[in-house]
């Protein structure tokens, strides 16, 4: 089972790498926001997979926090881009 989880982890990291290239290239800021959001979701899944890979599924609390924080960060950036003000 550990092999399957390790392969999944590597494919998630490959996905992060490709999305990261798009975040570095741009060209518009919306591409970057989209890439950050996709990397955030992939990281949440990666945290869960890593928890099972280590045999400690207690790490799932971390993934719950991440899923919420990632959404908040995306909303903050979008409010800045769209309305030029926060809150």
């Amino acid at each position: 089972m550990g092999t399957v989880l390790t392969i999944t982890m590597f494919s998630l990291m490959a996905s992060i790498l490709m999305t990261l290239v798009r975040a570095l290239k741009g060209p518009t800021s919306y591409d970057r926001i989209l890439s950050v959001n996709a990397i955030g979701t992939t990281t949440v899944v990666g945290v869960v997979v890593m928890g099972f890979l280590k045999g400690r599924p207690d790490f799932l609390d971390l993934a719950v926090v991440y899923a919420l924080v990632n959404f908040v960060a995306t909303v903050a950036i979008l409010r800045f881009v769209e309305q030029r003000r926060l809150g």
């Binding site: 800021s29 955030g40 990281t43 890593m50 971390l62």
Partner: peptide, 26 residues
């Protein structure tokens, strides 16, 4: 672009959190 640098900083901390978790520092 400063906005791009801010968003890349967000990606950096996401990756660092995966590294911390790999070190069992939850």
């Amino acid at each position: 672009s400063l906005l791009s640098a801010t968003m890349l900083g967000g990606i950096y901390s996401l990756l660092m959190a995966l590294i911390w978790q790999n070190m069992n520092a939850v």
